[in-house]
Every structure is written in structure tokens, then in C-alpha cells.
Design a protein around this nucleic acid. Structure first.
Lengths: 306, 306
DNA sequence: AAGGCGCACAACTGTTAGTTGTGCACTAAG
DNA sequence: CTTAGTGCACAACTAACAGTTGTGCGCCTT
């Protein structure tokens, strides 16, 4: 691809060869190989160089795009000034939405979003510099943050009840936590030992809910499928989660109140991380998060919201 | 890259090897080579397979994107059902704008936009099936379209005068063609023998304008630079051309009237071309082009607008 | 402690990408 | 029309590399 683009830009096999520090014959071979693989002629050879064929013209922008993507791929793991790397707790959490908003506001800042196992892993990764920031609930029970890691509360994501059309609560405009007692709530894929698990453990302990947080996670499609078909099951879902789901399956989203269980997202980062994108992210979040209110909500006692 | 993604998807070197029909050792070598090139560890090897490192997680979406782009690149020249291939007269012409609009309306139709030398080349390419459609002015003087090529007038693109701030006409709200007589109009990059050249030849012959359509084209940046700095020079530019140019250079766009010279774009295609995207394009243009009016405009006598 | 699973290392081999040397087609100048 | 020059392709050769088989080692499971 690089050779192809080089030939296009120089207009000659020989000059392209000089650019690439190889011989003209090698360029000839590479182009011939590419043309053979594609089963298409890319250049018309003239006495004064090489001109693109129509197929070559159609191919060119794709070739350039490929080189751009390859460059970004390498940059994504390049030590030094690599893209800002942010950990979120789940791809459908409110944190992902915040990152999308940040990307819209600062498209020039290259981003990589990853999902680590739990807050312990995330903090270790932050301290080592492997990631630049993390959206998590702080602090895990009995585990205060280390000195060199700072955090700031960003937002609360309210949990909503998701039910199928035949569920007993499917018609409710909203439900209180007390009303949920006795109903089976299914949360597959929650890994024991993570702060997610701790969150639901506390929710169960405080309000006597029935949460089945075990079992393998076969993906959200399978989960939604089951919820839609099973009248006795419901699940919790972040209010900002966008469901990609045909409307006719009749899934219902029902706000929970008295109190509203919320999952608090804080941003964590290493105090001395010099990445310029990190400062921009903190500024963006500070502006976006102004005016939140914790009244009437519930979060585990170990959570710091400040 | 394919190997990397295969390992991620299977979670094991061995299964990935089976998918790729190579041995486990070859997969091991490929991954080791990739990790060496990137100078980064992508997987943590465990007794039950391979898990992504943080760097690997950051790299993964880029790798997937690269494979997608590579696939599209191959598809762009694949004989058979390749993307709809459309020729436009210039990347900044109104035809490009129409194609962008078409792409917004039908994002599912893969497009390749190319620029051929002149209408002769374009017609030959249409007849051979190398391209599916072309936006051009028809018909070139004395060269009627062949039987198997159809055309339909799509729109007129009015030419505007582009001047620097010190040009004598810079302050005008609009100018008539008569007022342009005696002013030097510079159009570098117009290749003799093309229908572009014929268009300007006719314009000169009919109104006695001074158009310097010769000289090498050093790109639009150089052109705009010169226009901005040279009080004695102006140029023509399509009304829909979007200038990417700092506002403070003081370039002026001035409509031309009595009559308004327009460049007519027709769509050309081969009558028996079965590409499904072509029918969609024609329908889109028919809907978008309704209600144009040729009154008060000028185009060369050889142009067919119907 | 034993077995099995999964990846890495070593040695070998075939292919391929690169090199040098040369020829051929086309252009431009005399 | 001839001749020199330019630019790409083909041929022969070499070195490197990708893939193979064979094997070993660490870790998890039982």
C-alpha cells in the first residue's frame, strides 16, 4: 500500500523507489504483486512514468485510508505521546456517553477506551501509567485510594428497572424500592469481587431485594431476549443505556424511586500524569457535571461523592 | 492483524490457528512478531489461553478498523458487485456536492468517486463498464453521445468571480459579463482539448473576455494565494465550491449576471448498466433537481439541457 | 502428584522479497 | 529517420522470513 501511494505521489516507479530506499525493480514487483492479488490493473505504464487507471483511482483513497488507520493503530500503543486512554466500567455506561461527548467537544484529542476488570486493576493501571484515567465508583470497601491517585465525582447514573411486557410491574409509571421486594432481579455477568458486585451486595443487604448476580453472561442480546420472554424476571439498567432493540419486543423501562439507586461515577487519575488530554478531559467533565444533585438517591455507604 | 483479531475472538492461539488453517506455532510467531514491531505486549499468556493486555485492548478497535478498511479497499476494485463508481469533473464541483448528498441519503450504497480526463474518456469508461456514471456537460462540440449512453440534465452551477481585496471589482455586489471585459481572468490547470477548455473558449468568443486558461496548476492553495495578493487577477469559481481558506485573506465572491454563466452538469450512464446503486442515484437526482430554471443563464450552444 | 492443556523454543524447509544485470518500448532531439 | 535517453519489465541469484514438525516447560485441574 505504501508503495502504491508512493508511486501515485511521485508519478514514477523510480522516484517511488528512491523515496522508499529500494530499487525500481522491487517497486515494480510490489505493484505487480498488488495488481495480481487484486486481479486488476492499477497503473498504465507510459514512457514518462505511471498513471493511475480508473480502478487505481478508485483504489487510491482506500489505500490512503488504510495507511492512516495503520498509523493510528501503531500510535495507540506507542510509548510516549499515545492517545488518551480511559477505562470505563461498561461500554453502555454513562461514562461511555461522557466520553462520546468529550470526543465531540475535542475531536483533535485521540482517544482509546478500554474496560478493565475492576477498580483494583484500574488503580494499578493508573499508577503504572498504562491508562490515563478511569470512570469508577470510589472507593472500594476498605480500600482507600493511594496517595498519588486523585478522584472527583462526576455523575450519578440512576438504575431503571427493565421488564418484559408480561411482568407484574410492566404497567407501572415508576416503582419504589420497597415494591421490588420479592421480585426476581437478574444481573448476569457480575463478577464476584468487583465493585459492581459490592454495589449489588449492599443493595440487597439494605433493602432485602432478590438479585441473582451470578451466571455466565451471554451478551446483552441474550439478556434482553430472556427479559422480554420471562414474566418473572427483570433486570437493572442504567438510565443512559441506549438499547439497540426492536421496539415491538415490548421491553419496559421503569424508573425506581424512594430512594433512586444510582451508580456513582468518579474520574480517577494519577496526580502527576502530564498527558495534555487529561487536563482537557477534567475541564470538560467539570463543566458538564455542574449542578448535579444527590438528594433522594441511594448509593452504598462506602461511596465518596465529592 | 487478522491473526491478532482471530486470537482475541477465540481467546486461544490454538483455536485461532485452526480458524486460519495454520499451526499454533505460526500464530505464536505472528503475534510475537507483531508485539516486537509494536514494542508492546498485546496478550498475557495464561494456562487457559491468551487474554488482552491494556495495550492490546487499546489496539483491538484499531486492528478491526484496519481489517474493515482493507476489505473495502479490495471491494473497491472487485469485479462483480463493486461500489458504485461515479466520475465528477472536479472534486469541488457541484457534482461532488450532489454525491455527498446522495451518500447521506443512501449511506448503505458504497461509493467511489473518480475524476477522469475529459468527457471522451468518461464516455469510453461508461461504455466499457469501468465506471457507472459521470457528471459532465453534454455534448462535446460535434460529438453526439453514442446510442447506448443516456444522459439527463441535473443542474446548472453558476460561476462566480473570485477576487482579492484590492481588485477593482472587489466592492461590487454583483457584476455583469460586460463589466468583466478587459479584466484578466486566470484559470490555471484547464487542459486544452477537454470540455472545460471548450466551455471557456466559447465564453471568450461570445463576450470577448480575457481568460488565461493556460499554465500549470499548482493546486487551489497556490491559486487562492495568488488571487488574494494580485489586484489585477480574478478567477471563476463554482457557486457551490466551499473554500477552505482563512477568512482574513479578504477573498471576495461576486455573482455574475446578464447573463449568468453556468456550467451545466448532466448525468451520463450506460442504458443497460444493472448496478442497483445507479437506479438509486438517478432517482435521488430526479428528486433533488426538480424545479431548476435556465432563464437568464448562459451556457455554450452545444450544451444539451434536458 | 499426575495428567492435560496451552504456549514457546529449536531446527528445518520452501517461498518470497529484495538485489544486480539486462532488455525493450517509447519519447525527444538532432 | 536515427540516436540517445528515459522508464519499466524480465531473469537469475541470494538472503531472509514464514510456516512446518518436534519438543519442552509452566500452570491449572483432579
Amino acid at each position: 500500500m505504501r508503495t502504491f501511494v508512493a508511486v501515485v505521489e511521485t508519478g514514477q516507479f523510480q522516484d517511488a523507489a528512491a523515496d522508499l530506499s529500494i530499487t525500481q525493480q522491487a517497486v515494480s514487483k510490489r505493484i505487480a504483486g498488488l495488481e495480481k492479488d487484486l486481479a486488476v490493473r492499477l497503473f498504465t505504464r507510459t514512457a514518462r512514468g505511471a498513471r493511475l487507471t480508473i480502478d487505481g483511482q478508485a483504489f487510491l483513497p482506500h489505500a490512503r485510508e488504510l495507511l492512516r488507520v495503520a498509523e493510528r493503530a501503531v500510535a495507540s500503543v506507542l510509548p510516549g505521546s499515545r492517545p488518551l486512554r480511559v477505562d470505563v466500567i461498561a461500554s453502555r455506561s454513562a461514562a461511555s456517553g461522557l466520553m462520546r461527548g468529550f470526543h465531540r467537544a475535542h475531536p483533535e484529542i485521540e482517544l482509546d477506551v478500554v474496560m478493565l476488570f475492576d477498580i483494583e486493576t484500574a488503580v494499578a493501571a493508573i499508577r503504572s501509567g498504562a491508562i490515563d484515567a478511569s470512570f469508577r465508583a470510589v472507593a472500594a470497601p476498605g480500600r482507600p485510594l493511594p496517595e498519588d491517585v486523585e478522584s472527583v465525582w462526576v455523575l450519578d447514573e440512576a438504575l431503571q428497572l427493565l421488564t418484559g411486557p408480561a411482568h407484574a410491574l410492566a404497567g407501572a409509571r415508576s416503582v419504589t424500592v420497597a415494591q421490588l421486594v420479592g421480585h426476581r432481579i437478574w444481573m448476569p455477568g457480575i463478577v464476584p469481587g468487583t465493585e459492581w458486585a459490592a454495589y449489588y451486595d449492599d443493595l440487597v443487604a439494605e433493602f432485602g431485594l432478590t438479585i441473582e448476580a451470578t451466571g455466565p453472561n451471554f451478551g446483552s442480546d441474550a439478556l434482553l431476549d430472556t427479559i422480554a420472554d420471562t414474566p418473572a424476571l427483570a433486570t437493572f439498567m442504567g438510565e443512559q443505556t441506549r438499547l439497540v432493540w426492536p421496539a415491538d419486543h415490548g421491553l419496559r423501562r421503569i424508573p425506581v424511586t424512594d430512594p433512586a439507586p444510582v451508580y456513582p461515577h468518579s474520574l480517577l487519575w494519577r496526580r502527576d500524569n502530564p498527558h495534555p488530554g487529561l487536563a482537557a478531559l477534567r475541564a470538560h467533565l467539570a463543566a458538564a457535571a455542574a449542578g448535579h444533585d444527590a438528594a433522594g438517591t441511594w448509593a452504598p455507604g462506602w461511596v465518596i461523592r465529592s
